[in-house]
């Protein structure tokens, strides 16, 4: 098997006559930390939706572990090991924090006791004290952590964190970053979509920048920071 875990080849997505994404070619290596940046409307979330199966690409293909998954439904991609958190937290309301994690465990293959697995993941993100609370009662930071915990509980190979730090304070950003670093250390490849530049710069081994649905630059943090195309997108001519 190659060291590429996820690969997008010529992926395009249109909404009517509007081309929201592509064509995009992008590879993610096993255990890599990839940052995706770009202004609002640049196609970042559309890209994530094409990877996770919420959208089907109009052209091109998505490969996961050398397997074409372009036509596989979203829930099957989740079971294969592609997991995500949402830009706006979407807790399963009407359920406790623990139950929120039992949902993916009901449908994904995980060794051992489901409840023990859920409890250990909640402990790893610092939500042990909130296990029996209704998800509606969580703070913004706790909701972000719950999103991550729910994405992690099924033992994913790839985690996509879609603006997991939006609206958080500096201390809270550090907390979420620590969770993501720890997760990556265990071998999970992480794609971070973020507008908080210092967090993306700190976290990512490689960063790609999107504008109007196209990938315009790729490189390390310092290369991206000095790239004239990226500077033009963010600061103008």
């Amino acid at each position: 098997m190659s060291d590429t875990i996820l690969s997008l080849k010529g992926v395009e997505k249109h909404f009517g006559s509007f081309r929201a994404l592509g064509p995009v070619d992008l590879d993610l290596r096993v255990g890599e930390r990839l940052g995706i940046i770009g202004p609002n409307g640049s196609g970042k979330t559309t890209l994530i939706n094409c990877i996770t199966g919420v959208y089907r690409p109009d052209k091109g293909s998505v490969h996961f572990q050398d397997r074409d998954i372009s036509h596989i439904e979203a829930h099957k991609r989740a079971r294969l090991g592609i997991s995500r958190s949402f830009q706006i937290p979407r807790p399963f309301t009407g359920m406790t924090v623990l139950e929120n994690l039992l949902v993916p465990l009901d449908y994904c293959q995980v060794d051992g006791s489901k409840e023990e697995r859920a409890r250990s993941v909640l402990a790893s993100v610092g939500l042990s004290g909130r296990i029996s609370d209704p998800s509606e009662k969580l703070t913004q930071l706790e909701l972000r952590k719950l999103e991550l915990a729910r994405a992690l509980v099924g033992n994913p190979e790839v985690l996509i964190a879609d603006e997991a730090m939006a609206g958080l304070s500096e201390e809270e950003i550090d907390e979420v970053l620590a969770i993501l670093f720890a997760l990556n250390k265990s071998g999970v490849a992480v794609i971070m979509i973020e507008h908080i530049m210092h967090a993306v710069m700190r976290f990512s081994e490689r960063i790609v920048c999107f504008e109007t649905g196209r990938l315009i630059a790729t490189g390390t943090s310092s290369e991206i920071a000095e790239n004239p195309l990226v500077q033009k997108v963010y600061f103008g001519e």
Binding site: G94, D106, Y107, R150
Partner: peptide, 22 residues
């Protein structure tokens, strides 16, 4: 598991689907 899945669908269908719920 059926009820838990259905309640997840009720709360957010996209989030449920991306959590492995068919």
């Amino acid at each position: 598991w059926i009820g838990r899945g259905l309640r997840a669908v009720r709360a957010s269908e996209d989030a449920a689907e991306c959590s492995g719920v068919p």
